[in-house]
Every structure is written in structure tokens, then in C-alpha cells.
Design a protein around this nucleic acid. Structure first.
Lengths: 141, 141
DNA sequence: AGAAAGTTGAGTAAAATACTCAGAATTGAG
DNA sequence: CTCAATTCTGAGTATTTTACTCAACTTTCT
């Protein structure tokens, strides 16, 4: 059960944009340089982030991406859903998607695992990540 | 972030064996029929379960697999580790495996997610799964 | 006009997943 | 003792997913 680079890279990218919230758009080139992620790949990630309304874009010179909302209003789960399609660890998590649902001995444990993941991702926002970063890197920008 | 069939099938198989703990070995054929998993694939899973000491085998007629310990002593995390190699969602979870560790803005969130998963898997045993099953299928075998 | 950006769809190499298969080894039952 | 039932093992493979690349196009700022 591994987290893909989509989720990892994407969250780093959104964090980076969040740092400049209310200031200026951040270009893919900038993010690529700061986070060491290829520009081409970032384009694909932002395609999804934009579609899900997490970021908005400005074209042309001095353009780039900005968050559509305040960082405290964007949950980690929002970002993950946009990037990974779904943050479900199993298809059969959703009610009714499996005919054996009622009798499945192991379903309960997977539901618990899923819930614990959701709890963390739903209660952590981009702002929280920024705050953590600021606390641990006092003085540095 | 999907759970693989190794983990899903494997836990179902271990549950099945757990039902017969203290009675008789359960053959791959039986598990295959009851759980709808191919015999060939189950062999691969049991190779790992045996290597990690979760099950022991008896060859020949009337042979099969048994748990090495009481179901209440086998944690879900034990089974998952045996089957998936590691239940870590990221390589960089372990201290020191990433040079950016100290400055990584998103590491904290992944650590929290990992911990929440571990909490569930470490505190749930095969016996718990059996108990749940019995409770929801009273009267059934 | 030209450069700096985003936009999009298609394509691809590598890795992981989810198996299959064949044959050898072991053991219990008749 | 022999045969059938079963595990044991390594190799092989098809499919899917991941992790990208690439090229051409559009928009906007200067």
C-alpha cells in the first residue's frame, strides 16, 4: 500500500503555492526548481488540481497558479482526491459495491483503516502544513 | 493508495485458517473454494506467510496450513507485513532515509497517516475478525 | 511582435501486480 | 508399498499502473 508520486509531489506543489497565497501566482517553472519535480509532470498534476477547483491559473507572462481558497480551507483530502482520483484503499469500501459485503469477514478492518486515514486527511489543511513548516524553519523564508 | 490483492486475499485466507485453530489443518484447495481465490495464487501467498512464521504447514494427505499461534496473538499488521513486505506508505517514513527529512513540509502529514494506519492494524487481531464474523453470522457455521 | 506562461491529448518506458505453470518433495491412507 | 493428496519452489507472463515525456496550441503581458 504505497502512496504514489502524484500524491506526494502534488501536495508539495500545493504547499509551495500556499506559501504565496494572497501575493502572486507561482509558475510551474518555479515549483519545478524549488521542489525538484519535472515541469512536464507538474503540468499533468495541475491539470487535475485545476479541474477539481483547488487552484486557478493565470496565463501569459507573470502568470502561474494560485489557490482558489485560503489555505486553511483546503484539506489534504481535497488535494489527494483531485490527484489520486480517490483516496479509498479498496473499491469495496463503498456500500453496495460488493455482493459479499454482509458476509465479508475482513471488511470491518478495512473500514477502520480507511476511517483512520480519512480522519487525518480531513482534519489537516494546507495551512497546518505551512504552520508546521514555519515553526520548524524559524527565520528562514 | 490502494491495498493490493495480496493483502486482501491473504487476510481472508488467514481468517479462514483461524476459524479452525486447534482443530485441523486447512488445505489450499479448501480455502480456494471457500474464498474464491486461485490455488496457484494462494500458494504464493502462503510461501510468505510461512516464511514469516504466521502459519505452519503439514504436507501430504490430510495436510494443510495452521496458525502457529492463537488467533488473538496474530495482529493484522503481522499478516500485512508478511504479505506486502512492508506496510509503510512511503519509503521516507523511516528516519534517516531522506536527506530532506528536516525540511520536508509534507513529511509530518504522512507520518500522521502512517501512525493512524499502524494503530488500527496493530490493535486488531485475527481473533477480533473471527469474533466480528461470529457476531454477524449467528447460527451459521 | 515576441516571450512567457498555461492547456491538452497522445504516447511511452519501466515497474508493480496478479497471476499461471510445471515439476519436485513429502506424507498419510489403503 | 504405492498412490493420491498435499505442500514447496522457481520461473515465466499478461495486464495494469505509474511516472513520466513530448509537441503543438492558446493566452496574456510587455
Amino acid at each position: 500500500m504505497k502512496l504514489s508520486t502524484k500524491g506526494r509531489y502534488g501536495l508539495r506543489a500545493v504547499f509551495e503555492i500556499g506559501l504565496k497565497y494572497g501575493e502572486e501566482p507561482v509558475s510551474i517553472k518555479t515549483i519545478s526548481e524549488n521542489q525538484g519535480i519535472s515541469e512536464n509532470y507538474l503540468e499533468q498534476l495541475f491539470k487535475n488540481l485545476r479541474k477539481e477547483g483547488i487552484v486557478k491559473s493565470t496565463r501569459g507572462a507573470k502568470g502561474g497558479y494560485e489557490l482558489t481558497k485560503h489555505p486553511s480551507l483546503i484539506k489534504v483530502s481535497d488535494v489527494m482526491n483531485a490527484l489520486e482520483g480517490s483516496s479509498k484503499i479498496l473499491e469495496c469500501i463503498d456500500d453496495g459495491s460488493c455482493s459479499r459485503e454482509k458476509y465479508c469477514p475482513t471488511r470491518i478492518i478495512w473500514l477502520k483503516v480507511q476511517k483512520s486515514i480519512d480522519d487525518v486527511m480531513d482534519t489537516t489543511t494546507i495551512q497546518d502544513i505551512i504552520d508546521d513548516y514555519m515553526k520548524n524553519n524559524t527565520g528562514g523564508k
